[in-house]
Simulated assay, not measured.
Amino acid sequence: MNRSHLPGILAMAAVVVASNILVQFLFGQWLTWGAFTYPIAFLITDVMNRVYGAGPARRVVFVGFVVGVVCSLIGTQIMGEFGPLVTLRIALGSGLAFLTAQLLDVSIFAALRSGKWWRAPLASTLVGSSVDTVIFFTIAFSGALTWIEPANDVSWAGEMLPLLGAGPMAPLWVSLALADWLVKLSLALLALVPFRMIVTHLTAKPA
């Protein structure tokens, strides 16, 4: 790790901290504000991968993971209206989702890096974001995994409601996951613009 990697490290740490804070605030019925900041982590990983390679990208991911663990530990000590802001299931789901999805993103990007410029960041982010959503929401809220933290009552997340308020009946947590996933997919497409601009700037040869 050298000084040229520091902006990526700081950016990843900032995104993780901001997302952990903003996830406490609702945006509409299905989302939190954190849903709009967290996907930036994939943009940071992809920029690092394109400019510096898979090794530095993985190191930035591990920094983000450590920062996320620290945020979760702090959250477990802050009591909200219904108990700790961060439960064991949320901490476990968040950590596993981040690390698995981001490392998968790095591997897919590296495998596709020689293709068209947009293919690697788009494919890696789409797959990584999908895996992230499945892992986090399943571990954090699925009724099948209550054995992880029996004292944590997540029965509210299993309430059967129309999917996103209009579709077939499904557990509430599935609607939350689907809404989060759709935001990630949308931002994956939008992120291609700043990805191209940042990579071009960082790789431009001095005049």
Rank of each mutant, 00 (worst) to 15 (best):
M1R: 09
S4N: 09
S4I: 10
L6Y: 14
L6R: 12
G8Y: 12
I9D: 02
L10G: 12
A11G: 14
A14K: 00
V15W: 00
V17A: 04
I21S: 00
I21V: 15
V23E: 03
F25Q: 07
L26F: 09
F27L: 14
Q29S: 13
W30D: 04
T32L: 01
T32F: 00
W33A: 01
F36Q: 03
P39K: 02
A41K: 00
L43V: 08
D46N: 15
D46V: 04
V47L: 12
R50F: 02
Y52E: 11
A54N: 07
A54V: 07
G55S: 14
P56D: 05
P56V: 05
V60C: 05
V60I: 15
F62I: 14
V63Y: 09
V63Q: 02
V63P: 02
G64K: 01
G68K: 01
V70S: 00
V70Y: 00
C71T: 06
C71M: 15
I74N: 01
G75H: 02
M79E: 11
M79S: 08
M79G: 00
G80Q: 05
G80L: 08
F82K: 11
P84S: 10
P84H: 06
V86Q: 03
T87S: 11
L88A: 13
L88P: 01
I90D: 00
A91T: 07
G93D: 05
S94C: 02
S94H: 04
F98P: 00
L99F: 11
A101G: 08
L103I: 12
V106K: 05
V106T: 13
V106R: 04
S107I: 08
F109D: 09
L112Y: 08
R113C: 06
S114N: 13
G115I: 03
K116E: 15
W118R: 08
A120G: 08
P121N: 10
T125P: 04
G128F: 03
S129C: 13
V131S: 07
T133I: 10
V134K: 03
F137D: 02
F137T: 02
I139R: 01
I139Q: 02
A140D: 05
F141W: 15
G143P: 14
A144T: 10
L145Y: 13
T146N: 13
I148M: 12
V154T: 14
S155A: 15
S155K: 13
W156I: 13
P162C: 12
L163R: 11
L164S: 09
L164G: 10
L164D: 10
G165I: 08
M169F: 10
P171L: 06
W173C: 05
W173L: 06
V174N: 02
V174P: 04
S175V: 04
L176S: 05
A179E: 04
K184N: 09
L187G: 03
L187N: 03
A188W: 02
L189S: 10
V193K: 09
P194M: 10
P194T: 12
P194Y: 13
F195N: 08
F195A: 07
I198H: 05
L202E: 11
L202C: 08
T203E: 15
A204K: 14
A207V: 11
